[in-house]
């Protein structure tokens, strides 16, 4: 078994291997080259510190490492069917933990899909502890979407990319790696709406509107009931974007999530966020 930096492989090779690691996965999520390139760019994946496990010319597994100021993030870790039960997952973990130590990372983060018991056990064995559960939610488009009759909107103010970043930088909750400011700085054409309700409720939503999908939906309520104002803001958003499918990742299971559900979102699956502080010297 030999460990090779992932940067020595083409994106085509990495995608092919990654998709093979997910053929029997709990949540199907194949990628293509464009998706993996985008993923690596937005989430600061350092392929020179990521690893592919080889047996001769055959790939057995891979794991990737995101690197940001003072912290790292283990992602896309998987073992191909022909590499299972040979300690490949542990070898990848040891390499990525070693890379993190070399970078003097104070905290190492990762997420595991809820229900993926083998991966969860591997991470616990390597010193990771659960921090919180995160929801991946979807909302199918509704061409007939109208604002609810009892929703009284005082004003809606559309904002551009720079203003959206400004709003995101003032969030109260600690964002997950995917939703940190570093990620949003790598995304183009974010939009935002600041919504004020007649009853005094107020808040905002930031999002990325693609041709087919709304993604990166983040809501923050600044005044009013979190669930009710969230639902109101999302109704306003989807009234303006009736044709797009929506996916939003890593929501917290809090009052805001109730507002998402009221606005037509449903839970696709959950991730468990975990971290491991650096050992003290």
């Amino acid at each position: 078994m030999k460990l090779v930096p992932a940067g020595e492989f083409s994106f085509e090779q990495l995608v092919d291997a990654y998709n093979q690691t997910r053929v029997d996965y709990v949540v199907p999520m194949p990628m293509n080259v464009a998706r993996l390139q985008e993923y690596s760019r937005v989430y600061d994946v350092d392929l020179s510190r990521s690893v592919v496990v080889m047996n001769g010319d055959v790939m057995l597994g891979l794991g990737m490492l995101g690197v940001r100021n003072g912290r790292t993030w283990i992602t896309r870790l998987g073992v191909l069917p022909n590499g299972r039960r040979q300690g490949v997952g542990q070898a990848i973990m040891e390499e990525l933990l070693g890379q993190s130590a070399g970078l003097h990372a104070q905290t190492i983060w990762l997420e595991v899909i809820k229900g993926n018991t083998p991966a969860h056990k591997l991470f616990c064995k390597n010193g990771f502890r659960e921090t919180r559960e995160l929801i991946i939610a979807r909302r199918a488009p509704n061409l007939k979407a109208e604002l609810p009759d009892d929703l009284r909107v005082k004003s809606v103010t559309p904002l551009d990319h720079e203003d959206a970043l400004m709003l995101l930088s003032h969030r109260r909750e600690r964002p997950n790696w995917l939703n940190e400011m570093e990620s949003f700085h790598h995304v183009k054409n974010l939009s935002a709406l600041v919504v004020e309700l007649l009853d005094g409720g107020r808040g905002w939503v930031t999002y990325h509107a693609g041709l087919l999908q709304l993604t990166r939906v983040c809501v923050e309520v600044t005044v009013g009931d979190p669930a009710e104002v969230t639902a109101a803001i999302l109704h306003v958003l989807h009234q303006r974007h009736k044709r797009q499918d929506t996916i939003t990742e890593n929501l917290l299971d809090d009052e805001t999530w109730e507002g998402f559900k009221t606005a037509g979102y449903f839970e696709a699956f959950r991730r468990i966020e975990m971290n491991r502080p650096a050992p003290r010297n």
Binding site: V15, N19, P30, N32, R35, A140, L212, D245
Partner: peptide, 9 residues
């Protein structure tokens, strides 16, 4: 689960 666009989309 499709590689380029989600099947749902």
């Amino acid at each position: 689960g499709l590689p380029d666009i989600d099947g749902q989309t």
